[in-house]
Design a protein around this nucleic acid. Structure first.
Length: 621
DNA sequence: TTAGGGTTAG
């Protein structure tokens, strides 16, 4: 039992000391200060005090001094259930699930029974365990045995635990059995569905729920954004606004990331202005997100402005900016920033190296790429991952060093993935090495037999050489294995609305005007001496048909729509889900000259800034 | 016989 203090005099003196420590603790912000106060606690003989220990552990938790929290806890000979809970909470919140559950086992050994507060912390720890772990269900069993089954917090925690640990159906079973559900119950279940990519079921619950809070909206907005449906995320954000729900930081992070994905720079700018207007602190997370959004939206200048204005930067900030330079083909700027990062004493991580290597690859900086690949191992002791090898194979392959790239693959200490063989295959296409291409395809198809992109690449190589029988063979294989080509689509943002087009699309309300503009462009292109590059067309169709198919490629439709719906001279920003084809690339160069506009195209791999008949990629992509 | 400890979005 803890020591009892009987005398009222001692009691009040003791209380005064306690209060003194409490007020000291409430002013403490740094770990050093905590240590000083703790020393004082020992001098005053208050180190067995449960209340002080509770405050101290909470403080250690907020300053991430977990070892000191452990030390504090283990000084207490007789912890109350409240103190056990505080300690378990600290471990659980600091993502130490094994230690959390081990502490719970120790608690039970001391014969102190858990209470209703204990279980939510334990369930949080169980939620990060593997789906095969029996611990979560075992804790559920204890909850039933101890009679806490109907506590609303515990029920919600159970749903959250099951849905996070890969048992969505168990979560649903509990959900369906509940007669009283609050907004947290619904939110947890919806988040579980989106996490498992069961978007339909998640949306159905969201539409059905009787009452929504900002978390409900954030769950669906981020759920769609994470599942690659940025446009739906933005639609929901607009609906959220029209329903008068004020967004918070989490909403804005999700929306900015959806804007980045969709290339919706106008909407992104609006969010940026909203943050500034509403007094929300532009913290390092929001700033990093904005850098990414502006880079992916095509404006490196705006990305750089955000980067330069930051008073505190993390490695993510540097990585985002370097990656921005990389995708825009500004290899030298990326190299410069990488060197600045080094001078600023920020330790690069493996993502930094992916960014800098991909910057080298897009800009054709072969020697620099080789140097940084060596640096990452020798200077920073980073073990290259498959992604780094992928960058190197791509870099060497694009530069025409096909044999060196192939040698690198053969000597990799880890098995090459589809990305590596894909990069080599791509290089073979660029440099016309049919033999190595066939080898790469064979390896690729073994790794991913259902990926249509691989068949398409091989087919394109045959098509470019006029080997139509081989093209037909590849097509038959595709059909036989039930693989389908990902349909190409391009989008453009006009007045904060995204307009999406697929090949030959006639679904847009202004379709007639778009096609008139296309015809007009086609005529002007011909006058300017443009010859369609018909080898971009996959199948063996006659020349005239090929030409027509090229003319209605999704990026051309998006450009035509941009031209008829924006003021003369305005920059057009187009986002394509696949790589831009050779013909569209040549045509867009000329279009930029004819219409005197900057046209920025983001394809699956990188940016192309078209202006006055030229492209920033210098035809190297 | 003091206080504090719970669930959802990122």
């Amino acid at each position: 039992m803890p020591p009892l203090l009987h005398s009222p005099f001692i009691n009040s003196k003791y209380r005064a000391l306690e209060e003194g420590i409490f007020s000291l603790l409430s002013t403490s912000t740094s770990f050093n200060h905590i240590l000083q106060i703790h020393a004082r606690i020992f001098i005053l003989g208050l180190h067995q005090n449960n209340f002080i220990a509770t405050r101290l552990i909470n403080l250690c938790s907020s300053t991430f001094s977990i070892n000191h929290a452990c030390l504090t806890f283990h000084h207490i000979s007789y912890p109350t259930v409240g103190l056990w809970n505080t300690f378990i909470r600290t471990l659980s919140q600091n993502n130490l699930p094994i230690e959390t559950l081990r502490t719970y086992t120790q608690m039970k050994k001391t014969q102190i029974p858990p209470d209703n507060f204990t279980f939510p912390f334990l369930l949080k720890a169980c939620s990060v365990l593997s789906p095969s772990s029996p611990i979560g269900p075992a804790i559920h069993g204890e909850i039933i045995r101890t009679g806490f089954e109907f506590d609303p917090y515990i029920r919600n925690s159970l749903i959250d635990m099951y849905s996070k640990s890969g048992h969505l159906e168990s979560a649903f079973f509990l959900f369906e059995g509940m007669t009283v559900r609050d907004v947290v119950t619904w939110n947890s279940m919806i988040a579980g569905c989106f996490r498992r990519e069961d978007i339909g079921r998640g949306r159905e619950l969201f539409d059905r729920m009787p009452e929504r809070n900002v978390v409900s909206w954030n769950t669906v907005v981020s759920g769609y954004a994470h599942n690659g449906q940025a446009l739906e995320a933005l639609r929901l954000f607009r609906r959220m606004q029209s329903e008068g729900i004020p967004p918070n930081e989490v909403t804005l992070l999700s929306v900015i990331s959806a804007c980045a994905q969709a290339g919706a720079i106008e909407t992104g700018k609006w969010v940026h202005r909203y943050i500034e207007r509403s007094g929300i602190k532009l913290d390092v997370y929001l700033s990093n997100c904005l850098i990414d959004m502006y880079s992916k939206g095509g404006s490196l200048q705006d990305a750089r402005k955000v980067f330069d204005a930051m008073d505190k930067r993390t490695v993510v900030s540097w990585n985002s900016m370097i990656a921005g330079f990389a995708t825009h083909g500004c290899g030298e700027d990326a190299v410069l920033l990488f060197e600045n990062m080094d001078r600023a004493g920020v330790e690069p991580n493996d993502i930094t190296y992916i960014a800098i290597l991909s910057a080298c690859k897009h800009a054709g900086l072969i020697e620099e790429g080789r140097k940084y690949f060596k640096h990452m191992v020798e200077k920073h002791g980073t073990t290259p991952k498959v992604e780094h090898y992928g960058c190197m194979v791509d870099l060497l392959g694009r530069g025409g060093y096909l044999i060196e790239a192939h040698e690198l693959i053969k000597n990799m200490p880890i098995p090459p993935d589809a990305g590596i063989w894909g990069a080599l295959l791509d290089a073979c296409r660029t440099h016309g090495n049919l033999e190595l291409a066939e080898h790469a395809v064979a390896c690729l198809l073994e790794l991913e037999p259902c990926n249509a992109g691989n068949y398409v690449l091989l087919s394109n190589i045959y098509a470019a050489r006029g080997l139509w029988e081989d093209v037909e063979q590849v097509r038959k294989k595709m059909k036989g294995r039930k693989v389908e080509k990902t349909p190409g689509s391009s989008s453009i943002e006009v007045e904060s609305s995204i307009h999406e087009f697929v090949i030959g699309d006639r679904s847009h309300p202004r379709s007639n005007e778009i096609y008139e503009k296309l015809d007009d462009l086609a005529m002007q292109l011909k006058l300017a001496g443009y010859v369609p590059e018909t080898d971009s067309v996959l199948h063996d169709i006659c020349e005239e048909e090929k030409e027509h198919a090229l003319n209605v490629h999704s990026e051309k439709l998006a450009i035509a729509f941009g031209l008829i719906s924006t003021a003369p001279g305005m920059t057009l920003r187009v986002v394509k889900n696949l790589r831009v084809c050779k013909d569209c690339h040549s045509a867009t160069k000329l279009i930029s000259k004819i219409v005197r506009r900057k046209i920025i195209v983001r394809d699956r791999i990188r940016f192309h800034h078209f202006s006055d008949g030229r492209c920033s990629c210098k035809d190297f992509w």
